[in-house]
């Protein structure tokens, strides 16, 4: 069972601000979801390899050749703030 405090911590880890009352509401809802998911414990899965991707493809390689990429002005076109060809964010180091 998740506690409200845990949900607040997870939200912070995921960098999500919660609105008034949401921590409690989300805790209740997520516990319902996790309770339902307990059904998965009924299935015998010992020794089974987990499926990460349904496609039987591994090591997709291409020739080591330089190809075009997104031009810098387009990459920056939607930036909320940029300077000198870089994305700018609020100061990190005092």
């Amino acid at each position: 069972m998740l506690t409200t405090k845990q949900v607040e911590e997870i939200a912070h880890t995921a960098r999500l601000a919660l609105r008034e009352g949401e921590a409690k509401e989300f805790t209740r809802q997520l516990n319902q979801v996790l309770e339902k998911a307990q059904i998965l414990q009924q299935l015998k899965t010992e020794g089974l390899a987990p499926t990460i991707n349904p496609l039987p493809l591994t090591n997709v390689l291409r020739r080591d050749k330089v190809t075009g990429s997104l031009p810098r002005d387009l990459a920056l076109a939607n930036a909320p703030d940029h300077y000198g060809g870089c994305f700018r964010v609020p100061r990190i180091i005092e």
Partner: peptide
Amino acid sequence: YYLQAQRVRTLVR
């Protein structure tokens, strides 16, 4: 949860 769900995914396949 996660690893078990991925193993169940193998069962589904």
